[in-house]
Structure formats: C-alpha cells, structure tokens
C-alpha cells in the first residue's frame, strides 16, 4: 500500500489532471444519463425534476410513435446519407492534405497554407450559413451572378432551395470548414515519424510516393484508426466536424426539408420546441444506442483487419 501512495504522490500532477477529466465526464456525460428514464415515461414539463420519478411509465410508447411517424424513414435516410457522405469525403481529405503539406519544403508556404486552411474552423456555423447565403442565393448571390454573366448558366441556380444541392453543399462546406483543423492532428502524427526511417529509405532509393506509402502511412496508422473510430462513433453527429445539426438547422428550410431534416433537427422541432421532452429523449436515445453499436463495430473491424483498436 505505501508503495501505491508513494507512486500516486509522484504522479500527483497527472493524477489531478486525470481526475478532472473523470469529474467532467461524470458531471456532464454520466449524470445526465439519469434523465434517459423519461424516454419510457409520460414526463410533463410542468412536473419539473421530481417528474422524473413521479410521472407514469409508458413503456416504448414514444419509440413506437416515432417509428409510426410519416417522416420516420425520410429522417433516417437523411441522417444516414448525410453522415456517410461526410465520412466518405471528409475523413480522407485531411490525411491527404497533411501528407501533401508534409512534403512542402518551404517552411513559410507550409505555415501560410496551414494557417489559412484551419482558420475556417474558428468561424461559427451561423456565420458560415450567412456567408453561404451571400455567395449562393438566387437573387443577389455572387456565384449566380458569375455563372449567369459568364454564360455558364442560363438562369440563376437555386443552390439554397433545390433539394438536389443540399447534400453536396453540406459536405463541401464541412470540408472547407474542418479540413485544416484535422490536418493538424495528422501532421502532428507525421512529425512523430522517426527521420531515420526516411533517411534509410532514401539510401535504398525509395521515391517520394514510396516513402509516403511504406513509411508515413503505416506509421500514422494508429492515429488514423483512432480518429476513424471516433468519427464513426459520432457518425450521426456529423463525423469529424460534428456539424450535422448546425448545417441542417441553418441551411435547412421548408423547400429542402425533404433532404435536410435529420434526427437532431426533428428532435428539436417536435420534441424540445413543443416541450415534449419524453419524445425528444426517446429519439435521442435511439441515436445514442446506434452510435454506441457503431463504435463497437468499427473497433471490432479495425482490430480484425489492422490489429489496431481503441479498446
């Protein structure tokens, strides 16, 4: 025992840091889970916190109501499609960008590109949505003005309202906003690669592409897998950017609703805005359970095929 205490005392700073993390998770992640109980109860807003206990049990009533909702399949389709499209496009791009940046030899160019690419991460989605409106709207948008004046389009294109453009806009704006930020993570991993490996490869006559393929990528595989598992865990939230809700809420409108309505916006509209917290919790719980299963699945597959896993 004394040994343990001595060891803990030696790690005091790190232990305090870890404890703060654990306390954060306990307070903000685990304690609120008590509220999940209302997904199975007829909780009324006016009953307040005691209503968690006192309201009547209704079993799976809210889950069944959501399943029978006329929009159920459309919402599920939109949520899954937007999430998969983002994972497919937004996940590999920061890796490619990091590899390219790593090959840039001129330090000032590398720095400038890096800074310019990660700055959009700090712009909030509300500002980004305003910028998208200014650039792409039909009446006064710069893009439409350019397309029509150069003859590239006969008439202005309804980027903001035509449902056909919502998914591409969501993916592209997410790439623009978050690519630079995630590149930093992968660049940091690349910096950790032992330079001796590259030197040996050069001596052996390896080309630049071969060095990337046989040294850089295998070395940062662990980081890639961990980020991938976390992204899949947050698949319905929008993967790396975690931006599904913001995009659908801000860029969604009655015109493109058929393709922009997702689980989170529906929860807000039909659950929270109407004070139907039980219904909202049930929908949120469905999403959480699916996300948990996805984490386990991706971790299992990763371990099976690459030998690397998060747990």
């Amino acid at each position: 025992m004394p040994n343990i205490w001595r060891r803990l005392r030696g790690q005091l700073f790190y232990q305090v840091c870890a404890l703060m993390g654990i306390a954060f998770l306990l307070v903000f992640a685990y304690t609120p889970m008590v509220g999940l109980i209302i997904a199975f109860k007829n909780f009324k807003l006016t009953s307040g916190i005691p209503g968690f206990i006192t309201s009547e049990w209704v079993g799976f009533k809210w889950f069944i109501e959501f399943y029978n909702d006329i929009n159920f399949w459309q919402i599920i389709r939109n949520t899954v499609a937007i999430s998969l499209l983002k994972l497919f496009f937004t996940f590999p791009i920061p890796i490619l960008f990091a590899l390219v940046l790593n090959e840039v030899r001129k330090h000032s160019v590398k720095r400038t590109v890096q800074t310019v690419s990660y700055l959009p991460h700090f712009i909030s989605w509300i500002v980004v949505s305003g910028m998208i409106f200014s650039f792409f709207n039909e009446q006064t948008g710069v893009v439409n003005h350019f397309l029509v004046s150069t003859g590239l389009a006969d008439k202005p294109i309804s980027f903001l309202s035509d449902p056909a453009y919502f998914w591409p806009m969501a993916v592209l704006s997410d790439i623009w906003k978050e690519m630079g930020w995630w590149t930093i993570i992968f660049l940091a991993a690349i910096v950790g690669v032992d330079p001796a490996l590259y030197e040996a490869a050069v001596v052996d006559g390896a080309s630049r592409m071969q060095r990337i393929w046989y040294i850089t990528l295998p070395t940062i595989k662990g980081t890639i897998i961990i980020v991938l598992i976390l992204s899949i865990g947050n698949l319905f939230g929008g993967g790396l950017g975690g931006s599904n809700f913001e995009q659908s809420y801000l860029l969604g409108n009655p015109v493109n609703n058929g393709v922009s309505e997702i689980l989170q916006t529906y929860t807000l509209k039909m659950g929270l805005a109407q004070g139907r917290y039980s219904y909202a919790t049930a929908i949120g719980l469905i999403q959480s359970v699916i996300s948990l299963l996805l984490i386990y699945l991706s971790n299992y597959l990763s371990k099976r095929f690459s030998g690397v896993g998060l747990f």
């Binding site: 709207n137 039909e138 009446q139 006064t140 309804s158 035509d162 009655p254 015109v255």
Partner: peptide, 21 residues
C-alpha cells in the same frame, strides 16, 4: 415566384425588398 423565396430568413426578405428590385 421563386421557390427560394420560401427559404429566406426574414432579414433576407427585407434586404431584397429594400434593394428596389
């Protein structure tokens, strides 16, 4: 009538009306 007009935020509506177009 443009389909996009249903997608505007109120402030965007006013901006266009006040442009004189």
């Amino acid at each position: 009538l443009s389909g996009e007009s249903f997608a505007y935020k109120p402030e965007q509506f006013f901006q266009i009306v006040r442009s004189g177009k």
